[in-house]
Amino acid sequence: MKHQYLKNVTTLKLDQSLCTGCGKCTEVCPHQVFAIINSKCSTIDKDSCIECGACVKNCPFHALEVRPGVGCAAAVIKSWLTGGEPSCDCSSGGGCCS
């Protein structure tokens, strides 16, 4: 059964005019968000994007943009309490970093 999280929330943006169709994004994306169609990247399943930032970091042509972050409520609560960005820091419990 495929997991599905909230729709129409991702901050992922693709500028096709910069894309050369190298396909690095399809290699690194853990949720098969991209496909190369007619030698250009297309987002075929944008709602599966988890904003991990792998595609942005590995696109040599800067065609992708996202606000990277962790989809972790505990991290968000911690950032509300202490200020700063939510980051993956499970030193005080929580299961994600195991």
């Binding site: 997991h3 949720h31 972050g69 989809g71 968000v76 993956c88 299961g95």
Partner: peptide
């Protein structure tokens, strides 16, 4: 809180939910 352990949640989604 299990959103952090899951493999398919995004920060934007978690913020919206929260």
């Amino acid at each position: 809180n299990f959103t952090g352990s899951s493999t398919y949640t995004s920060l934007s989604g978690v913020l919206k939910e929260m």
